[in-house]
């Protein structure tokens, strides 16, 4: 796909979203959401207030922690499960079924375990984001082409050299895909966490806006979250593609 085609497609999708948004507004009225242009203007104003940034910092910090924990723990567990066949064979189906559990149902337990502070949000982000990172990493290690490891042996590499110079670069593209999925799910987890039991953060702003019937606020914050998520995801997707392109 050419770059020009890409820009054209992107513009068309954006226009379609704006049309649907405007249509929904016409249908449901200002009790449900605000129209696109008014929302953008309000969102820009909102971005200028210290109050918003107070909440945003809380969310971003919890989000950063949950991404970091999911990434480090996920890659470590994935490499371990992948390297030891038995552990991997036992862990993979368990993780895959855990992944399908609606994690919201675990939230009361998380709250009892971690309390109302930021740690519950972080933990909730991690239970969303961790499993995909583990599964992608595990899959990559398990499916590494055996000839690459045989080549490492024929080149007389030590086990540590093999891990550093063959195993890690070979699985890197898959790990990047796992991190991209984990990244989105961590954000989801943190926001849901903030919605249910928190006095700070973007999720709290949204739920608070709903409770106080501040439609302008909810719609604008939702827009900001969407723009952030789509922007970050596109950047990660570009990185992901670059890594896969080599493979």
């Amino acid at each position: 796909m050419s770059r020009r085609q890409g820009v054209l497609d992107g513009t068309l999708i954006l226009l379609a979203i704006l049309a649907v948004w405007q249509g929904l507004y016409q249908y449901a009225g200002s009790a449900a959401l605000t129209p696109p242009w008014a929302t953008v203007r309000y969102a820009v104003d909102l971005l200028g207030t210290p109050n918003f940034w107070g909440h945003a910092t809380q969310t971003l910090s919890a989000f950063a922690w949950s991404v970091a924990i999911s990434a480090v723990l996920g890659i470590a567990l994935g490499l371990w499960f992948g390297a030891f066949r038995f552990a991997g064979d036992v862990a993979e189906p368990m993780l895959a079924s855990l992944y399908t559990i609606p994690k919201v149902t675990l939230y009361p337990v998380m709250l009892l375990l971690f309390g109302l502070g930021p740690s519950a949000k972080i933990a909730f982000g991690v239970i969303h984001g961790l499993i995909p990172v583990v599964l992608f990493t595990l899959g990559a290690v398990k499916n590494i082409r055996p000839v690459l490891l045989r080549t490492a042996r024929s080149l007389r590499l030590s086990p540590i050299q093999t891990a550093r110079f063959v195993l890690v670069p070979a699985v890197l593209p898959e790990i990047a895909s796992g991190l991209r999925v984990g990244f989105s799910l961590c954000l989801l987890g943190v926001l849901i966490g903030e919605m249910f039991a928190s006095q700070r953060g973007i999720g709290f702003l949204i739920i608070n806006g709903i409770n106080s019937h501040n439609v302008k606020l909810t719609t604008a914050v939702t827009l900001i979250v969407i723009v952030f998520a789509v922007g970050a995801n596109s950047a990660l997707l570009a990185l992901d593609r670059r890594l896969h392109h080599r493979g």
């Binding site: 045989r150 024929s154 080599r246």
Partner: peptide, 19 residues
């Protein structure tokens, strides 16, 4: 282990795709 002085070329493509 593979002795020093022995080189092996495999049947499958064993080039490293990231390099």
């Amino acid at each position: 282990s593979v002795p020093d002085g022995v080189g092996v070329v495999f049947q499958e493509d064993a080039s490293f795709p990231w390099l």
